[in-house]
Design a protein around this nucleic acid. Structure first.
Lengths: 349, 349
DNA sequence: TTGTACGCGTTATCAA
DNA sequence: TTGATAACGCGTACAA
């Protein structure tokens, strides 16, 4: 662990002034001889400009934060990759910040953006509190939200109609002749949880079906383990159901696992759908029918919105929307079409 | 998007000097009246101290970077969670940096630590080039490596004997009477890839077995998709194998998926082991026998090493080692489950 | 107790 | 082209 050389030392070593050294390195205007000497000294000392000082002077860290509740969710990983790809050669660094399940942590992060942690923020929050909304509005850097804020707010955002996505799953199961359809939702105090519930109820009503309250379950988390536990409870309460709509692929995989353990055949005895169209769902045994929410595309659009706002900070705020897409696989249909891979979402330019 | 208030504006609003405002907020020495006025102005303006300026003055960002090649790998997610947990109430912020598959990107990141991006670095590189070693040695902030650097270097690190882990898998399969054991490795130019190969060859020799070169495969990545593709090639080359050691759980899951699709029964026709003991492996159908590399524990130890070095920057460098552990599941041993038999799934022909 | 002045490392402005 | 100097925002030793 060496000591950190400063520009001052470089200038001293090269025997030139501070200003000349700076210019020689930034390539503004310096004689070839000057550049040679300064660069030599810099290389010799292993000099690198201090990002902190540069930011202070220049205002800006060339860094964007991607804030996500659960980094273990493959959905966010897909967004992350798309964002990085979109940044490409802009020189922007993407730094991921895992905010965890406590909403205050997310608020803290947004607030701390005001301390100059990054030049921009892409955030995909699942729990939106009034405090978070306030913090997002009070942010001093451009913010793009992936998801819904419940209220219309002057913030760039990318959305997907996940209520519609649930509806597509329900209608798919209905078309297959399933008569006792249950929902294993995520936590109800989350944005996605609320939307999925709405979508489920709306679809069931549209199809003229009653709702058995016992068929409305909420897993404690959008995870495999929570999905498994919720499926156990559901199957205990009513072993007679013949279809499950899971709030995401992880819960869906958990549900398949629990059901299989009970000796149920999928999809003959029980059909199961997920949401998010993740890789793990597409290779699970059986493969999981799912509704793609186009995470990659949403990430790409969010990145683009942010870049555009960097260009023109005063332009109007935009809300972009992507469409869900049903992917039929073995967990609902015995012999599905051979397209078993999740979409490499990259449709836009 | 509001403007960013500075301490200067706070002082102006409160009608006091810059220094008084600073003191009133840091709580050093100020009259109650002063504190009241300044805090009021600060709250009114939504003032937050600028992290950049503070870092420049005080030296230190209170931020640690966790650099990881593939954020999609659940293994790293487990480390990440453990590190965050270990930081607990230290006030340290953890920021994840996905370096991707290109080694230069990793080197760039390490170098940019020298620009003051963070106060410390925890890195788990799978490709270790001489340049990376150099960069790590030249780092101006404390570094902890999770993994091996091939050569002994004065750097804090946490290791696990993954060659031993592969050996445990091989011996497990040997004890089960499997006679044609193949290895689906990750890329050979990675550290883990090389170690797993060593471990496999050593174990096979120890058991007095010859190596069929066709049974030594390398997936293009440590991913499900790559594992699936490699398994296809392997089964094409020799349909007669009765056991596969996969270099990690993701490859293992891909192998099960490919084998199942061919109508092979797991584990009757083909036993498969993974490495990493991930959640997805533990709930896959069938559940995947795996060797835990204790990612969580490694993350925790890495965090502790870093914290200790913060305390005492001049102390000796330590290398901590954790022990692998075999977890036997359905992909090698059909569970003698009494009443809850998984369906005798006749794979679709 | 309060205010003034300086320094952290860098880049930009202004004279020379 | 080059060098001296101001400024970015903050904290603190020093003087009042």
């Amino acid at each position: 662990m060496k000591a950190k050389p400063t520009l001052h030392q470089v200038a001293e070593t090269a025997g030139v002034s501070l200003a000349s050294a700076s210019r020689a390195l930034t390539g503004n205007s310096a004689s070839p001889e000057m550049v040679r000497r300064v660069r030599g000294a810099a290389k010799k000392l292993g000099y690198l400009p201090d990002a902190t000082a540069r930011s202070l002077r220049f205002g800006g860290t060339r860094q964007v934060i991607f804030a996500v509740d659960d980094i273990g969710n493959p959905n966010y990983v897909e967004m992350l990759r798309a964002i990085e790809r979109s940044f490409g050669d802009t020189g922007l660094r993407l730094s991921i910040s895992a905010t965890g399940r406590r909403p205050e942590q997310t608020v803290d992060l947004v607030r701390s953006m005001n301390m100059g942690l990054g030049d921009g923020l892409i955030i995909s929050p699942i729990r939106v509190t009034p405090e978070l909304r306030r913090a997002l509005l009070d942010a001093v850097v451009p913010v793009v939200v992936i998801g819904s804020l419940h209220r219309e707010i002057d913030i760039d955002s990318v959305r997907v109609d996940s209520a519609l996505a649930v509806g597509m799953a329900v209608e798919h199961l209905h078309a297959l002749g399933r008569s006792r359809i249950a929902l294993i939702n995520g936590p109800m105090d989350t944005n996605p949880g609320a939307a999925r519930r709405r979508g489920f109820l709306a679809a069931m009503e549209r199809l003229g079906r009653g709702i058995n309250p016992e068929h409305l379950r909420a897993a404690e988390d959008f995870t495999v383990a929570a999905g498994m536990a919720a499926a156990e409870r559901l199957l205990d309460a009513d072993p007679g159901i013949d279809a499950i709509v899971a709030a995401n692929d992880l819960i869906g995989v958990g549900a398949i696992s629990a059901a299989t353990r009970r000796g149920l055949r999928i999809p003959e005895d029980l059909a199961i759908t997920g949401i998010d169209d993740t890789e793990i769902g597409s290779v699970y045994n059986p493969t999981l029918t799912s509704v793609s929410l186009r995470a990659g595309e949403r990430g790409e659009l969010a990145a683009r919105l942010l870049l555009e706002r960097f260009e023109d900070p005063s332009r109007d705020h935009h809300t972009l929307t992507v469409q869900p897409e049903l992917k039929i696989r073995q967990s609902t249909v015995r012999t599905p079409s051979p397209s078993t891979h999740p979409s490499e979402s990259d449709p836009t330019s």
